[in-house]
Simulated assay, not measured.
Amino acid sequence: MREFSEAYLERTREGMWDDSRQALAPLALDSRERVLDVGCGTGELSRVLVAESAGEVVGCDADRELLEFAGEHVPVIAGDALRLPFPDDSFDLVVCQALLINLPDPAAALAEFARVSTDLVAAVEPDNGAVEVDSSVPTEERLESRARRAYLEGIGTDVTLGADAREAFSEAGLDVLETRRYDHERTIEPPYGEAALTIAQRKATGAGLADDRETMLEGAMDDEEYDALRSEWRAMGRDVIEQMEDRRYRRSEEIPFFVTVGRVNGPQ
Score class of each variant (00 low, 15 high):
38 V>L: 06
53 S>C: 15
28 A>T: 02
34 R>Q: 14
20 S>R: 12
29 L>Y: 05
39 G>F: 15
54 A>V: 02
21 R>L: 13
47 R>I: 02
54 A>K: 02
53 S>Q: 13
40 C>D: 01
19 D>L: 13
32 R>D: 11
44 E>T: 13
44 E>N: 15
45 L>H: 07
42 T>F: 14
59 G>M: 01
45 L>G: 07
51 A>I: 00
48 V>P: 01
27 L>W: 07
38 V>F: 07
62 A>R: 10
36 L>V: 05
51 A>Q: 06
59 G>Y: 06
55 G>V: 08
43 G>W: 01
44 E>M: 13
20 S>I: 06
22 Q>S: 14
22 Q>F: 12
28 A>Q: 08
40 C>M: 02
56 E>T: 13
59 G>D: 01
61 D>L: 08
56 E>L: 11
58 V>S: 07
43 G>K: 01
22 Q>R: 15
31 S>R: 11
22 Q>M: 15
33 E>R: 06
56 E>Y: 10
22 Q>P: 03
42 T>P: 07
33 E>I: 03
27 L>M: 10
43 G>I: 01
55 G>C: 14
62 A>W: 03
26 P>M: 13
39 G>Y: 08
50 V>R: 15
48 V>S: 04
61 D>N: 08
48 V>L: 09
29 L>P: 04
32 R>S: 04
36 L>H: 14
24 L>D: 00
46 S>H: 00
35 V>M: 09
40 C>L: 03
31 S>G: 05
19 D>V: 13
26 P>S: 10
53 S>E: 12
34 R>T: 10
49 L>C: 12
18 D>S: 11
28 A>I: 07
53 S>A: 15
46 S>N: 03
25 A>I: 11
40 C>R: 10
64 R>D: 15
47 R>D: 11
38 V>G: 09
51 A>N: 11
45 L>A: 02
20 S>D: 14
25 A>D: 13
59 G>K: 14
40 C>H: 01
60 C>D: 05
37 D>I: 01
29 L>N: 10
63 D>T: 07
53 S>T: 15
48 V>N: 01
18 D>V: 11
63 D>I: 00
51 A>C: 02
54 A>S: 10
63 D>C: 02
29 L>S: 01
61 D>H: 06
57 V>M: 12
24 L>W: 05
29 L>V: 13
32 R>F: 05
48 V>C: 05
51 A>K: 04
43 G>N: 03
20 S>M: 10
24 L>M: 03
47 R>T: 05
49 L>I: 09
54 A>P: 03
38 V>T: 08
25 A>K: 14
63 D>H: 05
61 D>P: 03
33 E>N: 08
34 R>S: 13
39 G>V: 10
56 E>R: 15
18 D>N: 04
58 V>L: 06
58 V>R: 15
31 S>Q: 09
24 L>F: 02
37 D>L: 00
42 T>K: 05
64 R>T: 06
